[in-house]
Lab assay of single mutants.
Amino acid sequence: QEELVKAFKALLKEEKFSSQGEIVAALQEQGFDNINQSKVSRMLTKFGAVRTRNAKMEMVYCLPAELGV
């Protein structure tokens, strides 16, 4: 569980995922086979993730800066 949270936060820091499906796929690539869209959705809510525009003006998920991840 701890490893999943770390990987999840690291992915969001990249600010390149525009959908929950993309986050699920990226986590599965890292070996988290039991991850699915509903789990990702709950984690996004739990950590207060928001959708914002990145440098390329794409809408992407990211974590609020005050979490200091």
Score class of each variant (00 low, 15 high):
Gln1Tyr: 15
Gln1Asp: 14
Gln1Ser: 13
Gln1Gly: 10
Gln1Leu: 12
Glu2Met: 12
Glu2Trp: 12
Glu2Ala: 13
Glu2Pro: 10
Glu2Arg: 10
Glu2Asp: 13
Glu3Leu: 12
Glu3Ile: 08
Glu3His: 10
Glu3Phe: 11
Leu4Thr: 03
Leu4Met: 07
Leu4Val: 07
Leu4Ser: 01
Leu4Trp: 05
Leu4Arg: 01
Leu4Gln: 02
Leu4Ala: 03
Val5Gln: 08
Val5Arg: 09
Val5Met: 12
Val5Tyr: 15
Val5Ser: 09
Val5Asn: 12
Val5Leu: 12
Val5Phe: 14
Val5Ala: 10
Lys6Trp: 09
Lys6Asp: 09
Lys6His: 10
Ala7Met: 07
Ala7Asp: 01
Ala7Tyr: 06
Phe8Met: 07
Phe8Tyr: 01
Phe8Val: 06
Lys9Val: 15
Lys9Phe: 15
Lys9Ile: 15
Lys9Pro: 01
Lys9Thr: 10
Lys9Gln: 09
Lys9Leu: 15
Lys9Ser: 05
Lys9Tyr: 14
Ala10Met: 10
Ala10Glu: 11
Ala10Gln: 13
Ala10Gly: 09
Ala10Phe: 08
Ala10Arg: 09
Leu11Thr: 02
Leu11Met: 08
Leu11Gln: 01
Leu11Arg: 01
Leu12Thr: 01
Leu12Met: 06
Leu12Gln: 00
Leu12Ala: 01
Leu12His: 00
Leu12Pro: 00
Leu12Phe: 04
Lys13Phe: 08
Lys13His: 09
Lys13Pro: 01
Lys13Trp: 11
Glu14His: 06
Glu14Leu: 15
Glu15Thr: 05
Glu15Val: 06
Glu15Met: 11
Glu15Gly: 08
Lys16Thr: 08
Lys16Val: 07
Lys16Trp: 04
Lys16Arg: 15
Lys16His: 06
Lys16Phe: 05
Lys16Gln: 07
Phe17Ser: 04
Phe17Trp: 07
Phe17Ile: 04
Ser18Tyr: 06
Ser18Ile: 08
Ser18Thr: 14
Ser18Asn: 06
Ser18Pro: 04
Ser18Glu: 06
Ser19Val: 05
Gln20Val: 15
Gln20Cys: 07
Gln20Lys: 15
Gln20Ile: 15
Gly21Thr: 11
Gly21Ile: 13
Glu22Cys: 04
Glu22Phe: 03
Glu22Tyr: 03
Ile23Glu: 00
Ile23Asn: 00
Ile23Lys: 00
Ile23Pro: 00
Ile23Val: 03
Val24Asp: 01
Val24Ile: 09
Val24Ala: 08
Ala25Cys: 08
Ala25Ser: 11
Ala25Gly: 06
Ala25Lys: 13
Ala26Ser: 05
Ala26Trp: 08
Ala26Arg: 07
Ala26Thr: 04
Ala26Asn: 05
Ala26Ile: 06
Ala26Asp: 02
Leu27Cys: 01
Leu27Lys: 01
Leu27Tyr: 00
Gln28Met: 11
Gln28Ala: 09
Gln28Pro: 00
Gln28His: 10
Gln28Val: 11
Gln28Lys: 14
Gln28Phe: 08
Glu29Gln: 11
Glu29Arg: 12
Glu29Val: 10
Glu29Asn: 10
Glu29Leu: 11
Gln30Phe: 07
Gln30Arg: 10
Gln30Met: 14
Gln30Asn: 05
Gly31Trp: 02
Phe32Thr: 00
Phe32Ile: 03
Phe32Ser: 01
Phe32Met: 02
Phe32His: 04
Asp33Asn: 12
Asp33Val: 14
Asp33Thr: 14
Asn34Lys: 10
Asn34Pro: 03
Asn34Ala: 10
Asn34Gln: 10
Asn34Tyr: 12
Asn34Arg: 09
Ile35Phe: 03
Ile35Pro: 01
Ile35Asn: 00
Ile35Ala: 06
Ile35Gly: 01
Ile35Leu: 07
Ile35Arg: 00
Asn36Ser: 12
Asn36Lys: 06
Asn36Asp: 14
Asn36His: 06
Asn36Pro: 04
Asn36Phe: 04
Asn36Met: 04
Gln37Glu: 14
Gln37Ser: 10
Ser38Cys: 05
Ser38Phe: 12
Ser38Trp: 12
Ser38Val: 12
Ser38Lys: 13
Ser38Gln: 13
Ser38Ile: 12
Ser38Glu: 14
Ser38Asp: 15
Lys39Leu: 15
Lys39Phe: 13
Lys39Arg: 11
Lys39Val: 15
Lys39Ala: 14
Val40Leu: 05
Val40Met: 03
Val40Glu: 00
Val40Tyr: 00
Val40Ala: 02
Val40Ser: 00
Val40Cys: 01
Ser41Ile: 08
Ser41Val: 09
Arg42Asn: 13
Arg42Ser: 13
Arg42Trp: 13
Met43Cys: 02
Met43Tyr: 05
Met43Arg: 00
Leu44Arg: 00
Leu44Cys: 02
Leu44Asn: 01
Leu44Lys: 01
Leu44Glu: 01
Thr45Phe: 10
Thr45Gln: 12
Thr45Asp: 14
Thr45Trp: 09
Lys46Tyr: 15
Lys46Phe: 15
Lys46Met: 14
Lys46Gln: 15
Lys46Trp: 14
Phe47Ala: 07
Phe47Met: 10
Gly48Leu: 04
Gly48Cys: 06
Gly48Ser: 05
Gly48Asn: 08
Gly48Pro: 02
Gly48Met: 04
Gly48His: 08
Gly48Tyr: 03
Gly48Phe: 04
Ala49Tyr: 05
Ala49Gly: 05
Ala49Thr: 03
Val50His: 08
Val50Glu: 06
Val50Gln: 09
Val50Tyr: 10
Val50Asn: 05
Arg51Lys: 14
Arg51Pro: 04
Arg51Glu: 05
Arg51Asp: 03
Arg51Phe: 13
Thr52Trp: 05
Thr52Ile: 15
Thr52Asn: 08
Arg53His: 12
Arg53Lys: 10
Arg53Met: 15
Arg53Glu: 08
Arg53Pro: 09
Arg53Gly: 04
Asn54Ser: 04
Asn54Gly: 05
Asn54Gln: 02
Asn54Cys: 03
Asn54Thr: 05
Asn54Pro: 02
Asn54Ile: 02
Asn54Leu: 03
Ala55Pro: 06
Ala55Leu: 06
Ala55Tyr: 04
Lys56Gly: 07
Lys56Glu: 10
Lys56Ala: 13
Lys56Phe: 10
Lys56Arg: 10
Lys56Pro: 02
Lys56Thr: 08
Lys56Ile: 06
Met57Asn: 15
Met57Gln: 12
Met57Pro: 03
Met57Ser: 10
Glu58Lys: 08
Glu58Arg: 06
Glu58Asn: 05
Glu58Ser: 04
Met59Cys: 03
Met59Ile: 11
Met59Ala: 05
Met59Phe: 12
Met59His: 05
Val60Pro: 02
Val60Glu: 02
Val60Gln: 03
Val60Asp: 02
Val60Ser: 03
Val60Arg: 03
Tyr61Glu: 02
Tyr61Gly: 02
Tyr61Pro: 02
Tyr61Val: 03
Tyr61Leu: 04
Cys62Gly: 14
Leu63Thr: 03
Leu63Pro: 03
Leu63Val: 04
Leu63Gln: 03
Pro64Lys: 06
Pro64Phe: 04
Pro64Trp: 03
Pro64Val: 06
Pro64Cys: 11
Ala65Ser: 14
Ala65Asp: 15
Ala65Gln: 12
Ala65Arg: 08
Glu66Phe: 08
Glu66Ile: 07
Glu66Arg: 06
Glu66Asn: 10
Glu66Trp: 09
Leu67Asp: 15
Leu67Phe: 07
Leu67Met: 12
Leu67Ile: 14
Leu67Pro: 14
Leu67Ala: 14
Leu67Thr: 14
Gly68Lys: 06
Gly68Leu: 09
Gly68Trp: 04
Gly68Met: 07
Gly68Gln: 12
Gly68Pro: 15
Val69Glu: 15
Val69Arg: 09
Val69Phe: 06
Val69Asp: 15
